[in-house]
Design a protein around this nucleic acid. Structure first.
Lengths: 151, 151
DNA sequence: CTTCATGTAACTATACATGTTACGATTCGG
DNA sequence: CCGAATCGTAACATGTATAGTTACATGAAG
């Protein structure tokens, strides 16, 4: 009944949701977004709630309610979304002991930390370079391509 | 009874173990290495077994047995060790659906994959730059520093 | 007031490194 | 040749975080 889950896919999920919302007229319900993502509506509310706390979306209850984007697509980048999700751990690999007395382990940690910090900095820089507007444009390009290939 | 575990620390563990072995005369038992790492001897055997399969260490059973390094410290780098461990997943974050039909999700995946692949390439390059001999030298430097500060 | 939708608590499912117990296989000392 | 030491490995338990699910309270629209 459960899909194979091993990694945090919330950033992927909220991006997918936000782009659908951007293409959609009016608010979208958690159930509609859940259908787009193949996810449970409660999980959608849980995750989108983090974006609401960051002021990136708003939610309205009752009839004709749902989720709306409350920010400019051109100003929201992936790094902000990662931050809005609480900056979840990026790496699945890490040191065994973060504050060791053993000098051997200190040398090991220093080498690994250096590599991981560089990779993390690069990743976050790349995240900062990509806005929702960029993704929307890429989607539009893919959409046009598909239509062209069908002619 | 269990220490707080959230990430794969096997690379950190084997580096710690290998450097202790490099400093040690003769083979080291799984129990001795477990004491160094604060880990269970069975876990040590399980993890070191992967390095044995890669030809980086050898194990001898019985009296005076244990683990020995069977490679030149100057030729073994962190990337080789990561490979010997089976190239475990580096990132704790990923796409929700790796092969989506939805064009929106394809655009999202493309952007995330690009960032993650760049960060992964950088990390593996940094891993390839660091040898066991480098770490041993860094340990020696830290050791000398500590002795100097005690004078 | 009924319906629709979010907000949220509580519980379950899953994967995987790690911890633990148990035992077989092998090597060496006496 | 017996027994201790040590690796090899199977089997099972533990802890953690996201994701799924159920249930219900809250609030808005008609």
């Amino acid at each position: 009944m459960y899909s194979y889950m091993k990694r945090d896919s919330r950033l992927s999920s909220v991006l997918h949701a936000l782009l659908h919302m951007a293409e959609h007229e009016g608010p979208m319900t958690s159930e509609a977004l859940g259908k787009c993502l193949g996810a449970n509506p409660v999980v959608v509310r849980r995750t989108m709630g983090l974006l609401r706390e960051a002021g990136l979306v708003s939610a309205e209850r009752g009839h004709a309610g749902g989720w709306r984007i409350s920010a400019d697509l051109k100003t929201v980048n992936l790094r902000q979304l990662h931050a809005a999700l609480g900056e979840p751990a990026i790496f699945a690999i890490g040191n065994r002991n973060e504050t060791p007395e053993c000098l051997v382990e200190q040398a090991v940690n220093a080498a690994l930390d250096k590599a991981f910090l560089e990779a993390e900095a690069l990743l976050l820089d790349r995240f900062a370079d990509v806005t929702l507007a960029d993704l929307a444009a890429d989607f539009a390009r893919r959409h046009a391509e598909r239509r062209a290939s069908k002619d």
